[in-house]
Design a protein around this nucleic acid. Sequence first.
DNA 1: AACGCGCACAACCGCGGTCGG
DNA 2: ACCGACCGCGGTTGTGCGCGT
Length: 237
Amino acid sequence: MGRAPCCEKMGLKKGLWTQEEDLILIHHINTHGHKNWRALPKQAGLLRCGKSCRLRWINYLKPDIKRGNFTREEEDMVIQLHETLGNRWSAIAAKFPGRTDNEIKNQKLSSLDTLNSKQQPVNLPTEEKKPLSPPQCVSSSMSTLTTSSDTTTNEHNSNHHHVPMMNNSTTAPESLDDDFWSQVLSADNNNSDATTSFPATGAAADGKFQGVHPSSVYNNVDYWFDVYMGAQEFPKF
DNA sequence: AACGCGCACAACCGCGGTCGG
DNA sequence: ACCGACCGCGGTTGTGCGCGT
């Protein structure tokens, strides 16, 4: 029926998330939980819509998220599950603790795309724009695909994001976190350096980040560590 | 060295389902 | 029973990076 627009688009920010936003979101969720996604951005003082916050949390910020390349076993399992479940990515993701539907979807789609372009340049009767239906894809080739993409994937993860990902992917555990936390730790030593321009977004609401530069946000590494430790299991860190 | 292309991934959009008033 | 609001899901798009030419 009269569906409300996903969010009041007035003045809401779109696009990539910044560290500050991530931290605000993490902090808010860890302290208040996420009972109401719609109200969350307001409460947290984020200029994002609730959906966006939810997506960011689920796909990226959740502490137990496992990132990095898919193992061969995982890939085979994804293929099998996709054959049985179809495009029900969330259902598939449910079988992979720590994996997100978005990640699985992306992985699968890109795998299929590359497979298609490589294997069936002519063969596909163009019945579908998307190669989604039961993939006859050979799992072995899938695996080679991912292994070939391993390096790039890792780099992507570490390059794209400058975010306190609590991932410890089984395959590439330390690539990002080390960088990130070393940055954090070094910043921690320079507490006094705290520069000025951290946007007093909503964090100002609870006074935690007001007037704090990103780097100085990360100065509170102990704080965040505590937050995480308190909130979730914080596997091997 | 510069440019273009393809890939991988993050994020957005819109719809359907569900729940509460 | 109806209506509205929220949540979750699947599909799609946008963006950045790496690689090849």
